[in-house]
Design a protein around this nucleic acid. Structure first.
Length: 603
RNA sequence: GGGGGCGUAGCUCAAUUGGUUAGAGCACCGGACUGUCGAUCCGGAGGUUGCGGGUUCGAGCCCCGUCGCCCUCGCCA
């Protein structure tokens, strides 16, 4: 086989006159009967190869070349003169006049070529992922992903972190997402669970005295995927001992700063902090997008002065509130468009959404305007609204109001072009509530996870037995947020067994199941556990931001579909009866009520 | 599990109110052509309209079911 002297992105004018050899894939061929041109592609670029009829043997072979054939050539690097240069190619100043051609592997006609993959349906691209991944864009993304993990490993290494692997075959716990289970052959009827995160292992490593742990690690959660979520995903997982919240945040911020600098040459300024309470109050979200305004404004006092039945009944109910946002220029929206917004709001649990417009002379116009005449002036002033703006109201309990308006401001900002290219808005969200009352199950849920340390000054409230007091307990948890997306989160952990037991108790985990599920942790905390804490960053989402995609499948080499399928492997798939027997598993599949063949659908 | 969108040639799409033999571009095959770079020109082949059923004189189009892909709600400590 011809050995390469260069890659397909390397040759420049300075190489003219040299004998070179290249190898790669046929990106396109142009056969002029006499002279034949081939664009040869490898991961570094594209180079034009020319076959002249004088080189009889090579030319004869080149005649048969088709897209995606894998070849190696040897030839002379020559200048492309007289307007024949191609400014769109990095190697466009030269071409290689081939005198040798080896067809390393003839390709059958591909379902699509990398060139046209951008327009091809995603399922086809996933089925033939090896062709899709030949695209320069995909190669650039995976290269970026490699660089990011390299930068992070180097950074954390310099900070004294040790990368330590933790098991994939773990134990199922009742908390959190649904587990992926792995049946045990050696212990009939028992199952491992794939880790949702290495949370407990990294805490144990702190107890074991490793002080600074890092792992770039796959995590598994058996929940339905989304555009930015896969069932298996990668975390940058870290944990530190003898530290406080500020120290962890400083370390992580340094990591982010270095990645953004080295990959995008962007300087991340010191990242501001905002409490959870403020984030929800002003933006209706615990991961607010600060690239635009449209903040939520409480107008409960004004709404109470109107005769609008919806407002009055909501305000009379416990926990009811009325908030609004001002949509700049939203007055131009049609009735149909604002109706659609109200319909959309219902998907988040709202019963509807009232709107009104600010018309000429600062008068409210259309929508619920007629109910608001008494407060029109005050409302417009409070909402800082101008002529031509739209005001959207949400009246419901706290949760629904914040959810609806929080989602609405993001939706409108996207749709109305309020997001500037290259704008990065970072923040830390801090002081999360520790616990949230679960009305259905009549117990507390952890907002972060059960191992999160409560704030010291709130600690005494935990054992008060008073619901209001307990729900006001804040925790040492923090999320890092970028442009409205949560890139990571962490906490200082509980390092005392009594506190940990107290939290378990509030979560409705009795002593017996504490012992069964988390006995090893409670034991470990008794045998000398240092104060510790950490954080996990979502690698996939970080890469999505860095390369500018909203599709998580773009940043994963072999992703799964929304049904959890790998279209290339055709996984998951059925297995042999023998495999099941080894695992002591008998299938009990859901009955499908199929109408008998030939039966009319309607009788 | 719920809601929405899509499924026609290898790929991307078209096909009038339900009406004759389902079309186009690219790719593919054959031919022509010595400077193209999305090569061009001439010719050709290529279809179980995702699958199953129903309504109809007649279904790519209407109805029922089912499968797949995407978005979304639930879910994601």
């Amino acid at each position: 086989m011809l050995k390469r002297t260069h890659n397909c992105g390397a040759l420049r004018s300075e190489h003219v006159g040299k004998t070179v050899s290249l190898a790669g894939w046929v990106n396109s061929y142009r056969d002029h009967g006499g002279v034949i041109f081939i664009d040869l592609r490898d991961r570094e670029g594209v180079t034009q190869i020319v076959f002249h009829p004088e080189n009889k043997e090579a030319h004869g072979l080149a005649d048969k070349l088709r897209n995606e054939d894998v070849i190696a050539i040897e030839g002379n690097c020559v200048a492309r003169e007289g307007g024949m240069a191609n400014p769109r190619l990095a190697t466009g100043q030269i071409e290689v006049q081939a005198h040798k051609l080896e067809i390393l592997n003839k390709a059958v006609t591909p379902p699509f070529t990398p060139d046209e993959a951008e327009k091809v349906g995603e399922d086809t691209r996933l089925t033939y992922r090896y062709i899709d991944l030949r695209r320069p864009r995909m190669q650039q993304i995976l290269r970026t992903r490699h660089r990011v993990t390299k930068i992070m490993r180097d950074y954390f290494d310099q900070q004294g972190f040790l990368e330590i692997e933790t098991p994939f075959l773990c134990k199922s716990t009742p908390e959190g997402a649904r587990d992926f289970l792995v049946p045990s052959r050696l212990q009939p009827g028992c199952f491992y669970a794939l880790p949702q995160s290495p949370q407990l292992f990294k805490q144990i490593l702190m107890v074991a005295g490793y002080e600074k742990y890092l792992q770039i690690v796959r995590c598994f959660r058996d929940e339905d995927p989304r555009a930015d979520r896969q069932a298996e995903f990668t975390q940058i997982d870290l944990e530190m001992s003898f530290i406080d919240q500020d120290e962890i945040m400083t370390v992580v911020e340094g990591c982010i700063r270095r990645v953004w600098k080295e990959v995008l040459n962007i300087d991340v300024p010191p990242i501001r902090r905002m409490t959870y309470a403020e984030a929800v109050d002003r933006y209706g979200s615990d991961r607010p997008d600060l690239r635009f305004g449209m903040e939520l404004v409480n107008i409960g006092d004004l709404a109470g002065k109107t005769d609008f039945g919806v407002f009055k009944s909501v305000l009379a109910a416990p926990g009811g509130m009325v908030k609004a946002i001002t949509v700049p220029g939203g007055g131009a929206m049609t009735r149909k468009e604002t109706d659609a917004l109200a319909e959309w709001a219902k998907t988040f649990g709202a019963k509807g959404m009232a709107v009104t417009k600010v018309g000429a002379g600062g008068a409210l116009d259309t929508g619920v305007a007629k109910f608001l005449t008494a407060i029109a002036g005050d409302l417009i002033a409070r909402m800082n609204a101008k002529e031509g703006d739209l005001i959207c109201f949400a009246a419901d309990n706290h949760k629904v109001v914040h959810r609806v308006l929080g989602e609405l401001r993001v939706k409108l900002a996207k749709e109305r072009g309020m997001l500037k290219e290259g704008d990065w808005q970072w923040l830390w969200v801090v002081d999360f509530p520790a616990l949230e009352w679960n009305t259905d199950e009549k117990r507390w849920d952890s907002l972060h996870h059960p191992f999160t340390a409560p704030n010291d000054e709130d600690l005494h409230k935990l054992s008060s037995g008073d619901q209001a007091a307990i729900s006001s307990v804040r925790s040492k948890a923090y999320d890092i947020v970028c442009n409205g997306s949560e890139l990571g989160g962490g906490s200082v952990r509980i390092h005392r067994p009594d506190t940990q037991q107290l939290i378990f108790k509030l979560l409705g985990i009795d002593e017996e199941s504490q012992k069964k599920k988390f006995g090893f942790l409670l034991d470990a905390l008794k045998f000398g556990a240092p104060p510790h804490g950490g954080l996990a960053l979502g690698l996939d989402r970080i890469i999505m931001h860095l390369v500018g995609t909203t599709n998580i499948r773009d940043v994963i080499a072999f992703p799964k579909t929304q049904n959890g399928a790998d279209l290339m492997l055709d996984a998951p798939s059925e297995v042999d009866e023998k495999q099941l027997r080894d695992l002591h598993i008998r299938l009990q599949l859901p009955q499908k009520d199929k109408p008998a063949p030939g039966t009319p659908a309607t009788v």
